[in-house]
Write a protein that binds this DNA or RNA. Structure first.
Lengths: 151, 151
DNA sequence: TCTTGACCTAAAGTTAGGTTTAGAAATTAC
DNA sequence: GTAATTTCTAAACCTAACTTTAGGTCAAGA
C-alpha cells in the first residue's frame, strides 16, 4: 500500500467516535475538506482526526460550528498543522472558556446572595441579563424575580 | 376592581420581558398554570412573575425546560410560595451550577496543559468525554485529539 | 465473479425552544 | 356603540446540529 491512500469516512468515524453522518455534515459546514478517490469516495488525512477532535472539544466549550470554523481557519492551509499551530488557535478557546466560567461564577455568587437572604428580589440579587451564550432575538435587559424597578 | 382579577398575558409579558408566545409555550410545557376568565382569556397571579423569572434564570444556568419543571414542582401547589420556598428550590440550582463550573474549569485547566506543552495528545490532555450538558443520543467515551489508546 | 458491506447524494425528519400566521372572539378606549 | 387592541387556538415555520431514509454505487473478500 502506498503511504497515503487516506482514511475512509468509516475509519475516521471510528477513530473519532463521531457518526459518519456527522462527519459529512461538518464537511457541508466547511469544517473539514477531504479529497475524493477515483470512485468518488471521501478520503481523509490522519491530521483530520485531530481536526475533528478539536471540533468536538470546542463544542463542549460552547462554540457554535460557524465559530469553530473561524477558529480552524487560523490553521495553515498548505501543510499539516504542527503542535504550535494548534497551540496558537487554542488560545482563543481559552479566552472563550474563561469568559463562560466568569459569567457562571458571577451567576452563582448572585444566587448565593439570594439563598442567603431568602429574598430573591432584584436589587440584591442582580440576576439579570447576564448574556450567557448569546440569546438570539434578545430583548434587552430584564428585571427578574418579580421586581420591577418602579417606585 | 376586585383585589384579584389577575394579570392578562400581555401584562405578564411586560413585567417579565418575555414574549407572549413564550409564556403560552411555557404553559404548554407545564411550567405555569394560569386560570381563565369568563371570556376564556388567561389570567395570572402576581406570583407568576416570580415563577417566570425563575424559569429565565434557570435557563441561563443551562437547565432545560423539563428540568426546570421538575425543580418548580418542589414549590407548594396550594399557596403562594414564600421566600423560604424559593430558597429551598434554589439550592438545587446552586448544585447544578457548581457542577457546570467544575466541568468547565477542568476543561480549561486541561486545555491549559495542552497549550503549555503544545502536544495536544490525549494521555496528557485528557480532554475527553467531559459530559458537559448531556449530549442526547451520546455514544460513550471518546478519545480525542487524534490519539487512540492503541499500544 | 459474486456478494456483502461501506459509501454516495438528496431530501426529509428530529429535538429544543420558541416565533409567526391566520382567522375569530373578547376587551378596552373613545 | 363602534373601533382598535388583545387575546384565543391551531398549525406552520425557524435555527442548530444532526440522523434517517431511499435509491443507488463502490470496494473487498471468498
Amino acid at each position: 500500500m502506498a503511504v497515503s491512500e487516506g482514511l475512509a469516512i468509516g475509519a475516521l468515524a471510528q477513530r473519532t467516535g463521531l457518526a459518519v453522518s456527522a462527519i459529512r455534515y461538518y464537511e457541508a459546514q466547511g469544517l473539514i475538506a477531504p479529497w475524493r478517490n477515483a470512485g468518488g469516495q471521501r478520503r481523509y488525512q490522519r491530521a483530520d482526526i485531530r481536526r475533528l477532535s478539536f471540533v468536538m472539544i470546542a463544542q463542549q466549550f460552547g462554540l457554535t460550528l460557524p465559530e469553530i470554523g473561524k477558529v480552524l481557519s487560523g490553521l495553515p492551509g498548505n501543510r499539516t498543522p504542527t503542535p504550535q499551530d494548534w497551540q496558537k488557535i487554542s488560545v482563543g478557546l481559552r479566552d472563550h472558556l474563561d469568559q463562560r466560567i466568569d459569567t457562571l461564577t458571577r451567576l452563582r455568587d448572585n444566587l448565593d446572595g439570594c439563598i442567603g437572604c431568602g429574598c430573591l428580589s432584584l436589587p440584591k440579587c442582580a440576576l439579570y441579563n447576564p448574556d450567557d451564550r448569546a440569546k438570539s432575538k434578545g430583548s434587552g435587559p430584564r428585571y427578574l424575580m418579580g421586581d420591577t424597578p418602579e417606585a
